[in-house]
Amino acid sequence: MASAVTGNGLPSGCKIFTTIPDILFIPEFIFGGLTWCLVASTRVDPPNPQGWVMFVSIFCFVFTTLWFIIFLGGANQSSVWPGLDTAYHFIAVLFYLSSSVALASVTLYYKNVITQGFYTPILNNTEAQNFKTYQENIAAVVMSYVTMLLYFIHAIFSALRWKSS
């Protein structure tokens, strides 16, 4: 693999598949999409934290797709792009961190519903539905934290590339 630093700025075209931070676009798509699908497949209850998780996963998925297309098309050759690349990935890290914590909180709530028999008017599912939602939320929390880690690694390597350019 080529190093993260290219003397001429950011890679474009198929060269993005050979540089360290840019190859992370693919796992970011996969794990971000899995987070989105897992949260969307559960009962979005309570709506506020789960809605934030959905917003973050969809926002980052769409913007990473746009970013990937810009890099693939070669429209990233201006001198401002290394800084924009770093800023975007750090913002994505902050978004995913906040949504991961919110999702973990909801997952703990479901754990309490299952283990201690809490009942709320909002959550009037059967025990089997609550357990299924709890399991899906656990998987979504793991995927969310993995996605956050991928964005963080991408942001660090992008910052190193920006500093050296």
Rank of each mutant, 00 (worst) to 15 (best):
S144F: 01
T42R: 13
P47M: 08
Y119E: 11
Q116L: 09
S3N: 12
L123D: 05
L150S: 01
V53M: 14
A139M: 08
R43T: 13
E127S: 07
T86N: 00
V5E: 06
Q135P: 00
R161Y: 04
S78M: 12
M54I: 14
G83I: 06
F95T: 01
V56K: 02
A92G: 02
S79Q: 13
I26C: 05
E127H: 11
L149Y: 03
A75M: 14
G73Y: 03
G117S: 06
K132A: 14
V56F: 10
A159E: 01
W162L: 02
N130P: 01
I138K: 02
L94M: 08
W162V: 00
P27R: 03
F118M: 11
S144H: 03
Y96F: 15
F59R: 09
A104E: 09
F55R: 06
G73I: 07
P46N: 09
V113C: 12
L10P: 05
E136G: 08
S105K: 11
L97P: 01
S98H: 04
L149E: 03
D22S: 07
I122D: 15
L72S: 07
F90D: 01
L97Q: 02
Q50N: 13
A140I: 06
I114F: 13
Y110P: 01
A40C: 05
L84M: 08
H154L: 00
I69V: 15
N76V: 08
Y109S: 12
L160W: 00
F68Q: 04
V142N: 03
K111C: 09
W52P: 07
S144I: 01
S164V: 09
V106Q: 06
Y96T: 09
V113T: 09
F68E: 10
L66Y: 15
T126R: 13
N125I: 05
Y134A: 13
K132H: 06
E127G: 03
I122V: 10
T115K: 14
Q50F: 07
T126I: 05
F31A: 06
G13A: 07
F90M: 01
E127D: 09
Q129E: 15
I91P: 00
K111I: 09
V53L: 10
I23C: 07
A159I: 00
F29P: 01
F55Q: 04
I138F: 01
T133V: 12
Y88P: 05
K163T: 00
Y145V: 14
Y119S: 13
K111W: 15
C37K: 12
W81S: 14
F25H: 08
A104M: 09
T115M: 10
C37L: 13
V5S: 06
W162K: 03
I58D: 04
G73A: 10
T6V: 04
T65R: 02
I26K: 02
V141T: 13
G13W: 06
H154G: 01
F71R: 15
L160A: 01
V106Y: 05
Y145R: 08
S78L: 11
S158C: 06
F61V: 02
I70D: 13
K163L: 00
P47H: 09
P47W: 07
S164M: 11
N137G: 12
I153P: 00
S41V: 10
T42H: 08
F55P: 04
F71I: 01
C37P: 05
F71T: 07
A40Q: 10
V44N: 14
A155V: 03
I58H: 04
F55I: 06
A87E: 02
T86E: 02
